[in-house]
């Protein structure tokens, strides 16, 4: 057994040092693959697509991929925080649709309400999720499943069983969704900014480290003086807010609150997060990985559209296969790290 203690009386120091170095090297390698695996695959897929489809490498197409990926990316960002704490948020797909409908409705009062009202509505549902999960110790799966059903019902009620479609009334809001800067849509810039904030929050603040600690070992975290319950409430609030924001962006893009989209979005988000190297069991993961995961799913979809004669449903088959491969690889990598 390699130990981290100096001068073990029974083993020559040189052997310990060599063992130690080897263990550290393996640890670093495995960590690298875990963190950057999705990025490497993304690069390979992009290279293959660029070589095979002349249309793929156009700047316009890149913009299309990014703008399509913007809302799911936000949802996956919130999901990353939730999953790192060892939880899950199934309500985000419903919140996304609800946020879109509410945003379109609120756009009659201008640009600011079109953003703030969905954030408020989805934020409140996030607070409820968080409080129930943190303080009653109910399973996140069940609590957020309830929120999924509840939010979907609320959306149906607001839209009269889906028969009323609210159109976006604010021109500024509409142009936010369709306009672009340097050839890249405004929503993409906004999402990029939110991701930078998210990255700083997760990797460079005490809150971010509390998120890892809670997922790594809840008991240990609480004994070490981490505010476990507060941390949990916040990640679900963030997840709700980000789903609401994603909904608003989508409403701005489409010009209306569409009620039929969003089913299964939560599962796509979970897939992207896990493909990005975040452990479903909590305690480890990165936002860079999630970006790679989201883009990977987006690029695959785009490629299938390019091929033309393949039904787009195959995108899901390929995404599913990717997910399976990643999970198997993760399991193997984690074990590799433990044995050494």
């Amino acid at each position: 057994m390699s130990t981290g203690i100096v001068s073990d009386p029974e083993v020559p120091a040189a052997v310990v040092a060599a063992d130690e170095r080897r263990a550290e090297r393996t640890d670093r390698m495995v960590g690298l693959v875990q963190r950057q695996g999705a990025l490497a695959v993304l690069i390979v897929v992009v290279l293959v697509a660029t070589a095979s489809f002349p249309n793929f490498r156009s700047f316009d197409n890149a913009g299309t991929i990014l703008i399509a990926a913007a809302p799911p990316a936000l949802i996956a960002l919130g999901m990353t925080f939730v999953i790192i704490t060892g939880g899950i948020d199934l309500s985000v797909g419903s919140l996304y649709v609800l946020g879109g409908v509410v945003s379109a409705y609120a756009s009659q009062w201008g640009l600011i309400p079109a953003f703030l009202v969905p954030l408020a509505v989805c934020g409140v549902i996030g607070v409820l999720n968080g409080l129930l999960i943190a303080y009653t110790r109910m399973a996140p799966f069940i609590v957020t499943l309830a929120a999924l059903l509840g939010a979907r019902g609320l959306m149906r009620a607001l839209s009269d069983e889906g028969s009323t479609t609210y159109l976006v009334r604010s021109d500024t809001f509409r142009s936010f969704g369709t306009g672009s800067f340097l050839g890249i849509g405004y929503p993409v810039w906004l999402v990029a900014a939110v991701f930078v904030l998210g990255m700083v929050l997760l990797s460079r603040t005490r809150f971010g480290h509390a998120v890892y600690a809670v997922g790594g070992s809840e008991d240990a975290a609480s004994l070490m003086g981490i505010a476990v319950r507060r941390t949990k409430v916040w990640v679900y609030v963030m997840s709700g807010l980000l789903a609401g924001l994603a909904g608003a962006i989508n409403a701005a893009k489409l010009g209306s609150g569409v009620t039929v989209l969003g089913t299964g979005m939560e599962l796509d988000a979970i897939a992207a997060v896990v493909i990005g190297g975040t452990l479903l069991t909590g305690g480890a993961g990165t936002i860079a990985g999630t970006i790679a995961g989201v883009l990977l799913l987006g690029v695959i979809q785009n490629m299938i559209n390019q091929v033309g004669n393949v039904p787009s449903s195959y995108q899901q088959v390929i995404s599913g296969a990717f997910l399976a491969v990643v999970v198997v690889a993760q399991t193997y990598l984690v074990r590799l790290r433990r044995v050494t």
Partner: peptide, 30 residues
């Protein structure tokens, strides 16, 4: 210090040592 080590195995040694009281820069970042 508890009988069974009560730290977070997935986090780094340094992060475990400083968890909850990490040194921060002037901007409030770690």
């Amino acid at each position: 210090i508890y009988q069974e080590v009560n730290l977070i195995p997935l986090m780094s040694v340094a992060h475990n040592l400083f968890l909850g009281r990490e040194p921060r820069t002037a901007y409030g970042l770690l």
